[in-house]
Amino acid sequence: MIWSLDFILLIFVVVCAIAAITVKDLLSAVIILAAYSFFMALLWAAMGAVDVAFTEASVGAGASTVFFIAAVFKTTRRAKG
């Protein structure tokens, strides 16, 4: 495990997590959450948990993003408050 790569990935994860809950546009939040999931998958793979990384990449960045986009399309795109 490379220390600097791990640090950069963790910074990306934290930035994506904070951006996903602060952004007003819900479609942008969904895409940022997919990016968060992707960086999390890279982090799992760097830690040696390849099976967890596989699940995170396929479910977090793949399937749940499609579900969230369908839900946003059916409701509203702007967050209230």
């Binding site: 390849v50 099976d51 990384a53 596989f54 699940t55 396929s58 479910v59 793949g62 399937a63 499609v66």
Partner: peptide
Amino acid sequence: SPGGGFQGGVILGASFI
């Protein structure tokens, strides 16, 4: 190897989606 029924099923479902 890494993977299995759940991950493969999700990928197979994503292709139909």
